[in-house]
Design a protein around this nucleic acid. Structure first.
Lengths: 200, 200
DNA sequence: CGCACTATTTATAAATA
DNA sequence: TTATTTATAAATAGTGC
């Protein structure tokens, strides 16, 4: 579209390139979302900006989950030709090295239905949030903004309370919630493992 | 495009859904490839057809590699990135035909029906939040609580910014840079293979 | 300097062969 | 039914404010 026809060649000027990226990225995200919604299917998307910033999109499940699912399919159907498949799969399913939350997530995926439930819950919440957060930009009056802020403060308070409560039984509860996951890795990974999967 | 405006709702008829999927899939792949080529960057895409068939696309590296790289990046970045932000924004802006009602514009012309529309949107959002709120009770680890809290804080900050803008107190949160447009390299060239790295 | 406008190219929903 | 064609909605490159 536009005044001229698109030329399939790298845009050399960095500035123009970045501008092009920004616009097109949004379009692709929009269309991907349309596809996911209209067809009620899973779509996962990852894009690196010329500057290296990552933008990800996933419809229902997390990008990781979608990928893992796609890979499982590929094992039997060779849909995703991948040289490092073996390696990657391994990394995804039994990683021990820290920094690879994916691994732990995959482990959970493979072993735990319990964790799955929890993830599902988080995912649901995330869905709501996805609808919610962007709208913040649309706030058009100070009153509305204040109302929103108030709402958030309220939630924040609840969170703090939950946190406080949890701190009382920390460690115990935590370990019992994720029996399928290697607890040592979990501990080593810090607090991001589970979380990451749900929001990344 | 087409004779009628797109309706963001699942297509119930299986056949129509599949047809829609096929067409749109190709477009998304094409545009993803354009982005990857013109910007010389990495893009990874996974799509499940209504029937479950997987379609993947990746520009340079494999989908897996790209994902792993993206994850490593994200691990060190904000814990709660919001992939769909721009996307949803656009979604909300979709009613472009009857004027611009993007967030910023809304702020500028927070009058008339546009304001009402926004309020309606806000109402919907809050309703969704109510759905999300109860889940707070399900938080089972301090880490999750902290994550949530962080998320809320982030939102709170945005609210504050919105308020600031609304109050005309802008000027302490600006930074973006949008250099002038520079165009060249518009020599004619033929299009060719688009799906080089696409696997079906 | 960032945003908005607009002439054109694209992408498509329908209609049609 | 599947492939084209047509009429319109979308996306967007270049330009203007």
């Amino acid at each position: 579209m536009g005044r001229n026809k698109l030329v399939m060649k790298k845009i050399e000027d960095p500035i123009s390139r970045q501008q092009f990226y920004s616009k097109r990225k949004d379009t692709i995200l929009k269309k991907s979302n349309e596809l996911a919604v209209l067809c009620d299917t899973d779509v996962a998307l990852l894009m690196f900006s010329p500057a290296g910033q990552v933008t990800s999109y996933s419809s229902k499940e997390s990008v990781e989950d979608i990928m893992v699912r796609a890979m499982n399919k590929s094992v039997n159907q060779r849909l995703i030709p991948n040289p490092n498949e073996q390696l990657l799969m391994q990394s995804l399913t039994q990683s021990k090295s820290e920094g690879k939350m994916v691994g732990k997530i995959a482990i959970a995926e493979a072993h735990g239905k319990k964790l799955n439930e929890l993830k599902e819950t988080l995912r649901e919440a995330q869905q709501k949030i996805r609808y919610y957060k962007p709208q913040v930009e649309n706030i058009s009056s100070v009153q509305e903004a204040e109302a929103y802020a108030q709402f958030l403060r309220s939630n924040m308070e609840q969170i703090q309370q939950s946190k406080a409560k949890l701190l009382g039984v920390q460690g115990f509860l935590q370990r019992n919630e994720y029996p399928a996951v290697n607890t040592e890795d979990m501990a080593a990974a810090g607090n991001e493992a589970l979380y990451l999967n749900a929001y990344w």
